[in-house]
């Protein structure tokens, strides 16, 4: 069931959600078996920023009802060390590499795209626009007009496919998708995590409720996993109706049946995120079941 995605030929339609699989870290747990049984048809890196980021203070995780709230805070080495240390290792993966980047101004984004443009190891770039604009504080991706303007100005910096990872925390995600298409995106991906909060249980780990209401070190976090699937499906369907560019659908996919649902509402590819935490090999199973069964009639 090979698919064409923005000119890339992928063995099947299942990829990973950015930030939910570290192919370099996982090699330390599984060794070469990871590469010989690599579950994804393309590998998406976690979000890379210009400057290194340590990420948010712990705790970073809260298990919600059939879901996960994370406030990881996009820890990464920064562009320079990603290029020099991680790219050579990621280039050994048996699948195309999609590098996910985020910047808080058009200039920052353009610089990230230019750097990716020069590296042949990178097949495509995914731009995470769930980032507050440093001037307005508004997520770049939450305001269609701003999104279109930023994309128009940065798009010439990259001669490879550009995927825009939309934020679900906005008034009208289909309108944002349309703006991304107008601004020059070759594809859109969604959903990113839904903004969410968990309160600390009274007395947990010696924590007094009065100390801080929020459990997560970052205050709020993002909800993912099975719980978000119905929301994700609605957003993916709305976006696929509005745009003509390919859509990467994700949010709570746990099985081939779920992947079929996203494909049925118009997704070209389906990404698996949180479910890989329950079983790192789940995406292989989903891909092979999709192949065996074909779309449900």
């Amino acid at each position: 069931m090979s698919v064409d995605f923005c000119g890339l030929r992928l063995a099947h339609p299942i990829i990973n959600g950015s930030g939910t699989f570290d192919a370099i870290g996982a090699r330390h747990a599984f060794g070469d078996a990871l590469h010989s049984a690599f579950p994804f048809a393309a590998f998406v890196s976690k979000t890379i920023t210009l400057a290194p980021r340590a990420g948010n203070p712990p705790p970073r995780l809260w298990e919600a009802q059939a879901g996960l709230i994370n406030s990881i805070g996009l820890p990464n080495k920064g562009l320079e060390r990603y290029m020099s240390e991680d790219l050579p290792e990621l280039a050994q993966l048996p699948v195309p590499l999609i590098t996910n980047v985020m910047g808080s101004t058009a200039e920052e984004i353009a610089e990230l795209l230019r750097a990716c443009d020069t590296r042949k190891e990178i097949a495509a770039v995914e731009l995470n626009v769930s980032c507050p604009n440093v001037h307005t504080g508004l997520d770049i991706g939450a305001d269609p007009a701003q999104l279109e303007r930023v994309l128009r100005s940065v798009r010439p910096a990259l001669r490879k496919p550009l995927i825009v990872k939309l934020t679900p925390n906005c008034a009208d995600v289909a309108e944002c998708a349309r703006a991304a298409q107008e601004g020059g995106a070759d594809a859109v991906s969604l959903i990113n995590t839904l903004r969410a909060m968990a309160l600390a249980p009274a007395g947990a780990h010696g924590r007094e409720r009065s100390q801080s209401l929020a459990w997560l070190g970052g205050g709020t976090g993002g909800l993912s996993g099975a719980a978000v699937r119905p929301v994700a499906l609605a957003q993916v369907a709305a976006v696929a109706r509005r745009v003509s560019i390919p859509v990467v659908g994700m949010g709570g996919v746990q099985s081939a049946a779920h992947a079929h649902q996203f494909l049925a509402v118009g997704a070209r590819l389906v990404a698996v995120g949180t479910e890989s935490f329950r079983d790192p090999a789940v995406a292989s199973r989903i891909a092979s079941q999709l192949d065996d069964e074909g779309p449900p009639t």
Binding site: T20, D22, A26, K46, P59, R60, E63, I72, F277, P280
Partner: peptide, 17 residues
């Protein structure tokens, strides 16, 4: 020990300074 989601380095959730 730290709260974990994945156990194999994927989520960056289990950190200590």
């Amino acid at each position: 020990e730290a709260g974990m989601a994945c156990g194999f380095g994927a989520c960056f959730g289990c950190v200590v300074p």
